[in-house]
Amino acid sequence: MKTDELIGMLSTNVETVDRRQMSRTLARAIVLGALVALAAGLIVLGGRTDVGGNAALGFTVIKLIFAMTVTALAVFYLIRSARPGGSRRSSAVLVLLPFAGIVGLASISLAYAPAVHSQTMLMGDEWLECLLSIPIIAVVPFALVVWAVRQAAPTHLRRAGALAGLVAGGLSAAGYALHCTADSLPFVAIWYSGTIMLCTLAGALLGPRLLRW
C-alpha cells in the first residue's frame, strides 16, 4: 500500500471527533465500577448494621473519605496517563498523600492509646477478611477501567496499569468500608493501604499486557 493511498482513505469523509469521548468512557467505567464495589460491600458482604453509634459512623466516614481521596487522585493521574505522552510531564507522587495522611493519623491514635490495645488496633479481627475482600472486589472495577483506558492511548503502560489498579483498589476499599467493622485507624492504615497497594502492584504488572494497542 502506498502511503498517499492510506492518507487519501483516512481523509475521505473524515468524521468529527467528540472531544469528551475519552473522559466520558472513563467516567462510565468508574461509575459502574463504583456501583459494583458498593453492591459487593452492601449486598454480598452485607452492610454494617451498627452504624447507629457515633464512633462507628465516624470510622466509616473516615474510611470512605480515605478510599475516595485515593480514587480521586488516581483518576486524575489516570486521565493524563491515558493520553499519548501524558505521563511524561507530571510525576504522580501526589497519589501517596492520602496514604501518608492515614498513617500519620494512625500513629497519633496509637501513641495515645494504652499499649495493651495496640495489638487489637493493628490487627483487629478482620484483617484476613480485609486482605482478601479488597483485592477480590477490585477485580470487576479493574476490568472496567482497563477496558476504558484501552479505548484511549496510553504510552506508558506500566504506569497506566498501576493507576488503573489504584483506582480499582480505591473503589473496592470504599465498598468494603460499608461492611468492615474494624474501627481503628491503625487497622485502616495497614490493611486498607496494603491491599490497595497490592491492587496497584497487580495493575503495574498487568498493564503492559492488557493495555497494548
Binding site: 492510506l6 483516512l10 469521548q21 493520553r83 499519548p84 511524561r88 492511548a153
Partner: peptide
C-alpha cells in the same frame, strides 16, 4: 511503521487534548 503510526494517529485522535500542543502528542504515538 509510518503507515502503522498514521492509522494509530487517526483511530486515536480523540485522545488529543485541544488545550495541549499537537507535536508532543503525535511524537508520543
Amino acid at each position: 511503521l509510518l503507515q502503522e503510526a498514521l492509522l494509530a494517529i487517526h483511530t486515536r485522535r480523540h485522545t488529543y487534548d485541544r488545550a495541549e500542543l499537537f507535536t508532543p502528542w503525535m511524537y508520543a504515538i
